[in-house]
Design a protein around this nucleic acid. Structure first.
Lengths: 326, 326
DNA sequence: ATGAAAGCGCTAACAC
DNA sequence: GTGTTAGCGCTTTCAT
């Protein structure tokens, strides 16, 4: 690999001048030409590691998410990436696999690699940001809060849980179960809250047996749905706590010949790649891409030196109601 | 941020000793203890940028894929990640968005950031690897070949196309269309080949109107399926060139009241998050995770200095036939 | 506008 | 086993 010195020698200038050419500051026309020509000839690309070491910062941001196989997060990632690359930043995607330890490792890498900032969908409410905050790197929380006083972008989760439930009530269902995500994740708890609120508002029972905490994954949805169906008095409808739970629940229902709307189904989150007709399942669409875009903008602002007090932005959902009921 | 010098001073040793402690070479028990204690107190983490600059290599590999929203690639990413992190490497995921220019940018970043190697699912047959190869960084191709003499892991695409088609033939369909991926992508072309072969072997027509080149995405599948249905003489079955095309095609069929098996459907690739019964659609399962695992192992071997001639590994598929026909 | 030179934080010879 | 020291390739004062 050619260095700045090789280019300088070939172009007959100093290393400093080569650096200036690549950083767009005042250099005379002729020298610019000479340097560019020499660089091309040597296939020179500036060594980013050296630049980062010298500058103590790099145009890279980290996006840490708990499940790279969940389309909700990849859609968000696209939003982040579009904004970041527009601004000349690269995004490195880190999959914490919902484990606090892995997450911690990635946060340390972000510090140690001089990344400019982090967008984080926390693995749990036990996530620690001490180190990264001590390092002075800006962090924006997405999807879930963190317990720290930092910027954040979240969905209107209570609303989402409530609307999903209300749609089922309006469609005439009355024994409405809820398969929620893990109890230690904020979004899950808030959606449960919405489900409770809606039931209470309509004088329906929130039978504890109808609430299942599960994982935010397909198998979690499957297991919980099986349990619900095995109940002495099964529900006649179910609210799925996220997209993957929805997929799992519907799979099980299909296997039992209870394809919606035989049993009512409402899902918080878009159904990824569904082949179902949109008329049979109520979906509360969560603007994942928009969340990514917003978070990236906030982070870039912070990187740019913005130091106003921390803000949290709550994104509104869009409901897409089933038109068919049983 | 504390440096190695700060730690050395506090622990009463030389910077070199601190370095040794963090790199696991012979240091006396007491000094190790002193250094660890000092490091903890100062919240010291080794600066990776500096280490990378010095060592001229970093324990990071890049995984460049054309569509981060496609579960096929994220599943593969998990495989890569599992192997890599086991070996102490981090993976940075780069989304080329199927654009050769973006891909080129990421490859340059990989060079400039001293990453140890790259796993690449090429955006197109025009992908250039000149620079990265000149930089001496190992590259392993996945999913698609590259036209360069490098290691690769690919699926048995012809087989996949052929098996998918034959399943439909055996189920009694005779006018079998194929919605393929882009014509400039190897995997797409090979699957077309398999489709042709199967039809020929059974004396069925490969009507040119029944072959549609499209994008490897849901909307590509949708458009092509609409076109096929609008034909004066529409097909009675269709082979989808990948998972997302399959989703799009089935969506359109459902909207037209032609849910499989009213029209036969076979998909090359697993249907992500499907809520359909497995009995109605034939699926050729592609071992995406395994592909990632294999590629990561090959890359790590190369990084470790392995210099045997380039190998290409072809992964076998598993067919999961529909049990219901019309 | 340009060059000389210092130094970012770490590692790896090389001495002892 | 441990310390000294010279860079890795770049940016950035400070002179000129």
């Amino acid at each position: 690999m050619a260095t700045i010195y090789d280019v300088a020698r070939l172009a007959g200038v100093s290393p400093a001048t080569v650096s200036r050419v690549f950083n767009g500051v005042g250099v005379s026309e002729e020298k610019v030409a000479a340097v560019r020509q020499a660089a091309a000839q040597l296939k020179f690309f500036p060594n980013r590691t050296a630049r980062t070491l010298r500058r103590q910062s790099s145009e890279v941001i980290a996006l840490v998410i708990p499940d790279i196989e969940n389309p909700y997060f990849t859609e968000m990632a696209r939003g982040v990436e579009d904004v970041a690359s527009e601004a000349g930043f690269s995004v490195v995607l880190c999959n914490s696999d919902a484990q606090v330890e892995k997450e911690q490792t990635y946060l340390r890498i972000a510090i140690a690699e001089h990344m400019s900032g982090v967008i984080l969908a926390a693995a749990s409410d036990r996530t620690s940001l001490e180190e990264i905050m001590a390092a002075g790197r800006p962090v924006v929380a997405v999807d879930r809060g963190t317990g720290y006083d930092i910027d954040g972008v979240v969905m209107a989760n209570r609303d989402a849980g409530r609307s999903a439930t209300e749609q089922l009530i309006e469609a005439g269902y009355s024994r409405i179960a809820h398969i929620a995500g893990p109890e230690h994740i904020e979004t899950a708890v808030e959606r449960v809250d919405g489900w409770r609120t809606a039931l209470a508002a309509h004088g329906l029972p929130a039978d504890p047996g109808l609430l299942r905490f599960s994982s935010f994954r397909v198998d979690g949805g499957r297991e919980a749905m099986e349990e619900l169906l095995a109940l002495p008095e099964p529900p006649d409808a179910v609210v799925a706590g996220n997209n993957l739970i929805g997929v799992g629940a519907i799979q099980v229902l299909t296997e039992h010949g209870l394809t919606p709307p035989a049993m009512g189904v409402a899902v918080v989150g878009s159904l990824p790649f569904t082949t179902l007709s949109p008329s049979v399942v109520t979906v509360v669409r969560l603007p994942a891409r928009h969340m990514g875009v917003t978070a990236a903008r906030m982070l870039l602002d912070r990187i740019g030196g913005d130091d106003q007090p921390a803000r949290t932005i709550v994104l509104r959902n869009e409901i897409q109601a089933a038109t068919v009921s049983r």
